[in-house]
């Protein structure tokens, strides 16, 4: 389980996170939603130990975060981090050299799943395919938790569908996933848990199926209440 407790982070005098607390379980997909800008990416970066915070704590399976977090958690940023002149094959080789826990079998499977060719150059990929490669690079690492920053933003509908399909597939296995997004439509049926953030605070945290069962509300219904209420 990832436990975020009272996380507080300031940029200058502005608090981007003001006592954010939530949990994300292994084997579940947790969605961090925020209507306007700040907070989501910072939270993911804090979990990875990529950014400092002024107050609060983060525990991963009961352990404080440390510099070896990359063995347990993979972070998938919203922009590609590979060199544009590399082919997909070279980029995968690069990852394999760097990560001891790189799983080439899963990487190949993902490539087939996304119908991509390993001979393509990163620079030649469409936006949608770039997002898929980005996802592949993160998912092919054997870790217990995966953090994805805006995997759906700015890409075409078919790529979004393909990416959403990954969440329903065995490629996720029983790992814990945290996704940030501001578009919920593609994945409403796929997520277990929702955290609604605004201006650095958690407005609501709920389980999607429980919400449907007990209150008959969709995720968007709750968002409308919370953000426009």
């Amino acid at each position: 389980m990832i436990e975020v407790n009272q996380l507080t982070k300031k940029f200058g005098r502005k608090k981007v996170l003001d006592g954010v607390s939530f949990t994300a379980n292994k084997g579940e997909i947790t969605c961090l939603i925020g209507i306007n800008g700040v907070g989501k990416t910072t939270t993911l970066k804090a979990i990875m130990g990529l950014t400092s915070f002024s107050k609060g704590s983060i525990l991963i399976d009961g352990q404080k975060i440390n510099k070896n977090m990359y063995e347990k958690v993979a972070f998938i940023p919203d922009a590609i981090t590979m060199l544009p002149q590399m082919t997909i094959k070279q980029a995968m080789q690069f990852m394999q050299d760097f990560y001891q826990n790189w799983n080439q079998e899963r990487a190949t499977e993902l490539l087939t799943f996304f119908k991509l060719d390993e001979k393509s150059r990163i620079s030649e990929l469409s936006k949608g395919n770039t997002a898929k490669i980005n996802l592949l690079m993160g998912l092919a690492i054997d870790v217990d938790y995966i953090l994805m920053d805006e995997p759906f933003s700015g890409i075409d509908i078919f790529s979004r569908e393909q990416i959403a399909d990954v969440f329903a597939s065995h490629l996720i296995e029983d790992r814990g996933v945290i996704i940030t997004t501001h578009e919920i439509n593609d994945i409403e049926h796929l997520i277990d848990k929702v955290i609604l953030l605004d201006n650095g605070i958690v407005l609501k945290e709920f389980n999607t199926e429980q919400m449907r069962q007990e209150e008959g509300k969709s995720v968007v219904d709750v968002m409308r209440e919370v953000y426009q209420g």
């Binding site: 969440f167 329903a168 996720i172 049926h189 796929l190």
Partner: peptide, 11 residues
């Protein structure tokens, strides 16, 4: 079932 119906495996 999860993969064909495009739903969460927990569901």
């Amino acid at each position: 079932l999860a993969a064909t119906m495009k739903i969460n495996p927990n569901t």
